[in-house]
């Protein structure tokens, strides 16, 4: 057997892994995106709890971020993977579901990323909320806005605006975190490279390809976040 050239190896020919790698890149983007959104929900609630006057909520939220900050993400993912579906199975059992609750690796992965990135996003949202002009909140209250309306019309749009740079960082983080999801068997970019490296015994070729694909995603998303930031600030005068 003749050694394949690098481009045959990652190309789209019969011996090439090109299509598999591209599909896996799509999977990386999909799981990272869903995880990021799940993290936004978690992050919003945790930020809200941290800012609330309720001691129990604050303690709970602080405990959550402390634990997540203190233990390796790899462990969080493992725990979520092994413990999560056992817990889910137990809950399902209560409602009479039959033993097996299949949680696709994709959902497990996205939720795990959500739990980890939620801690980071909570800090981003909290920081952004604290920049808000208190006067605007008072004004909203004085015209009779209710809490949810105020959140939707006043708080959310502005917090999102201030949070964009922080969210950009979190997104990069989530993207890299998605590589750890490979340990749960989800065929994303790293796992596919890993499989290909093992199958062809050409580790360097595939890991360097993976690294380049990650860099391309990083580069494009940095650009998009910068665009979003400029767009969101279009009505504001720069103070600096």
């Amino acid at each position: 057997m003749q050694q394949l050239s690098y481009f045959e190896l990652i190309g789209f020919g019969p011996k090439g892994w090109g299509l598999a790698l591209l599909t896996a890149t799509g999977m990386t983007l999909a799981v990272a995106l869903c995880g990021f959104l799940a993290g936004s929900i978690v992050g919003t609630f945790v930020a809200w709890a941290k800012l609330s006057r309720n001691l129990a909520a604050r303690t709970l939220a602080d405990g959550y971020t402390t634990v997540l900050r203190g233990i390796p993400d790899l462990l969080v993912i493992y725990l979520f993977y092994f413990g999560g579906s056992a817990a889910l199975g137990a809950i399902g059992g209560l409602f009479g579901a039959q033993g097996f609750i299949g949680v696709p690796a994709f959902v497990t992965g996205a939720l795990a990323i959500g739990i980890v990135s939620g801690a980071y996003q909570a800090e981003v949202f909290r920081g952004a909320y604290q920049i808000l002009n208190r006067g605007e909140l008072e004004a909203a209250r004085s015209v009779g806005m209710h809490r949810w309306l105020m959140f939707r019309r006043i708080i959310a749009p502005q917090v999102l605006r201030y949070a964009i740079p922080g969210l950009g960082n979190t997104w990069q983080l989530v993207l890299k975190e998605s590589a750890l999801i490979s340990v749960t068997g989800l065929v994303e970019l790293l796992r596919q490279s890993h499989i290909a490296a093992g199958s062809t015994r050409r580790p360097f070729d595939f890991y360097i390809t993976a690294a380049i694909l990650y860099l391309v995603i990083t580069w494009v998303s940095t650009y998009l976040f910068q665009r979003a930031e400029t767009h969101s600030l279009r009505g504001l005068r720069r103070t600096s």
């Binding site: 019969p14 011996k15 090439g16 892994w17 299509l19 598999a20 599909t23 896996a24 065929v187 596919q192 499989i195 290909a196 093992g198 199958s199 062809t200």
Partner: peptide
Amino acid sequence: YAPWNFTGAGG
């Protein structure tokens, strides 16, 4: 774990 189970070209 070839040849028991392994991943061929294209995954």
